[in-house]
């Protein structure tokens, strides 16, 4: 009963942060601020939904001693790690390419990169 509650709480945290990420993607005014919303919020939300699967797999493994649930937990954990690291690097690559392409941060207080390579 407690573990079911933990899984449900993880899933609710994950989906609410994913929802906030997509809302930020739709509401923010320019590319860089949109990227803030998608990178942080969707990575965090997907980590929590995957963590619920890890908890579920470990629970069933200690409940039934069937090794397929161990496989489930380990592989969900690896998928979570792959997701977290690739998202950060991918967003960095898109931001760098966008600035080289000539997209300026449109509401901006200051832009030091503009002075560095115009």
């Amino acid at each position: 009963m407690i573990i079911e509650g933990v899984i449900l709480i993880f899933l609710l945290i994950g989906t609410s942060f994913n929802t906030l990420g997509v809302l930020g993607l739709l509401r923010f005014p320019d590319l860089y601020t949109r990227m803030h919303a998608t990178t942080k919020a969707t990575t965090f939300g997907s980590i929590f939904t995957s963590l619920s699967v890890v908890v579920y797999g470990l629970w069933l493994f200690f409940d039934s001693k069937d090794s397929q649930f161990m496989v489930l937990a380990i592989h969900a954990f690896i998928a979570m790690l792959a997701l977290a690291f690739t998202n950060a690097v991918g967003s960095h690559a898109i931001a760098r390419a966008a600035h080289r392409m000539g997209i300026k941060p449109s509401p901006a207080i200051c832009d030091r990169l503009e002075e560095f390579h115009p």
């Binding site: 930020g24 509401r27 320019d30 860089y32 207080i109």
Partner: peptide, 12 residues
């Protein structure tokens, strides 16, 4: 920030 939209962005 998503809910209140209070932003003051810039590159430093």
């Amino acid at each position: 920030r998503v809910i209140t939209m209070k932003i003051r962005p810039g590159i430093v």
